[in-house]
């Protein structure tokens, strides 16, 4: 039935068009193509290359990772802009949704770059284990991030399912300080209808509950990241201020 308050009808045709549009947006804003990642999955860092990373100072490695993370976030910003209805939101609400949602989507997308057979992630052009990030001094965070990637990979999401899940992670009406919560909620409801429609089509309705369970893990990973950043910026305030990417500082400090 037509919902008078919903900016657009929730007919099946509309839902399928919305699904296709989100899948296209995901594909068009993916930092790495799946085929590329598959082809490179056995390209591991050599012992010497690993040693080079582990010999970096903590501030060098933090800066390096902040740059890489910021690159990934920018792809997520482009993804958000292409989600139907997102640009119709107020500018403050667009910022609010991305302020926390961008890192969460980066973490979801990271599972595409993860090889569960040897627990390695694609970074700087090759695959490396948590050992690669030793000099960050954030062992617990990296283990938690790798564990999360494992758990998402275990769901064996298709690219289409990942696209929908990413949009749901981003369009979160529970974020604090939203000015038009109702509008975000309506957008979210259509995305939920899209996801259940897609999972029903794929005969994988049990996935919906498992996906929603991931959201709380995502939030704890993001808080742990901010906690680590706080720890680091107390030790190296000048580094964060002077050489960290400005977008990273805007989002996370």
């Amino acid at each position: 039935p037509e919902d008078p308050y919903c900016p657009y009808p929730t007919s099946l045709l509309h839902i399928e068009e919305l699904c296709d549009s989100i899948v296209r947006s995901h594909r068009d804003t993916s930092q790495f193509r799946l085929e590329e990642l598959q082809a490179l999955r056995w390209k591991l860092f050599s012992r010497e290359e690993l040693h080079a990373y582990q010999s970096k100072s903590v501030d060098e490695m933090w800066q390096h990772c902040a740059v890489r993370l910021t690159e990934a976030v920018q792809y997520v910003v482009e993804f958000a802009k292409r989600i139907p209805g997102f640009r119709g939101l107020g500018q403050n609400d667009q910022i609010t949704l991305l302020k926390t949602g961008s890192m969460e989507v980066v973490l979801v997308r990271m599972s595409r770059c993860f090889n569960t057979e040897n627990s390695t992630v694609f970074f700087d052009g090759k695959f490396g284990s948590t050992e690669l990030f030793k000099s960050l001094g954030c062992g617990d965070l990296m283990v938690a991030v790798f564990d999360f990637a494992h758990s998402v990979c275990a769901l064996r999401l298709t690219e289409q399912q990942m696209a929908l899940f990413s949009s749901l992670v981003l369009i979160n009406p529970d974020r604090p300080c939203l000015e038009d919560r109702g509008r975000v909620h309506r957008m979210r409801r259509d995305l939920e209808v899209c996801l259940s429609h897609m999972l029903r089509r794929d005969n994988q309705e049990s996935l919906q509950h498992k996906l929603y369970q991931k959201v709380s893990v995502l939030q704890s990973l993001c808080s742990l990241h901010v906690e680590k950043l706080h720890w680091f910026s107390q030790r190296y305030p000048l580094i964060v201020h002077s050489v960290f990417p400005p977008l990273y500082k805007e989002l996370f400090t």
Partner: peptide, 17 residues
């Protein structure tokens, strides 16, 4: 909020072409 997130705001303003 826009004041504190100038870069993000600018990225959001850029066209999606």
């Amino acid at each position: 909020l826009k004041e504190k997130h100038k870069i993000l705001h600018r990225l959001l303003q850029n066209s999606t072409s």
